[in-house]
Amino acid sequence: MSVICTERLTRRFGNVVAVRDLDLEISGGGVVGLVGPNGSGKSTLIRLLLGLIKPTSGTATVFGAPISHPRAYAARVGALVEGPAFVPTLSARTNLRSLARLRGIPNGRVEEVLEAVGLLDRSKEPAKRFSLGMKQRLGIAAALLPDPELLVLDEPTNGLDPAGIVEIRTLLRRLGDEGRTVVVSSHLLSEIEAACDALAVIRYGDLLFSGPMSELVSRAGGCIEAQPEHIADVTRLAELLASRGWTVSVREGDVLVDAPASQAADVNRAAAEAGMTLCALRPRNASLEDVFLRMTGEPQEAPA
């Protein structure tokens, strides 16, 4: 049975369509990435699934129960939505105890989740004294409180230092390997690539891809990276290659040509004919980032 299933799920805020006719199915177990630029509808989708907001149209189920009745699955779901939220003057432990009491969870579980996120030693300190990274860990601890079968984490590594990111990634992998379903939304592709088994790509409310990560990368194939000798020629080269029928994108002074390595000579010839000298021309296997850029047509950290 699908853990999450949406059918033509739509949510509008005035004239803005945050989620549009979304058909998405997430099976149980493993870590699933929910990827999209900022403002792409990831958080809105998560809010819809958790029953925090109501859909404009369409339906969705979590563990087979409709999202109009979130009580049916609330005890099986833990979530961190748009950053951690706590009473700043209360200690980490008291904050978690308050949430544990709401869910009818014994205090012993609070100690377990504090240990799991590495905050046991700092649990007596008021949450307001915590760094952003520690607050993020506390948010994850709150999500883990019900020992959830489905864990939904919205940008869980925000504010974490590299070591913290690796720790959280390891934690997510462990939770996924234990058989839980972990849905991680992020606009940071490296994070998704390292932690997830499958992913769903969303842009402005539209689902662009859903499936195993390997399928997405293999489907994308490779590309050719061409770097003109003079940086001023980047735009001209991109326009030239586009006019010859290639699909191109520009990134950090390079022109990425959506073509197999066998066409590298053709690219070089076209540039030379136009009076441009290339100082680098190399075939590249597509990374998740390349695929994402091609799918969404914009940088991964596009403004909302």
Binding site: G51, L52, P70, R71, A79, V81, V87, L102
Partner: peptide
């Protein structure tokens, strides 16, 4: 209002949808 401004309302409603 603090439940709303701190975002705690998200956790509360998710934990107890009634």
């Amino acid at each position: 209002t603090t439940d709303v401004s701190s975002g705690l309302i998200r956790l509360l409603v998710q934990a107890e949808p009634r």
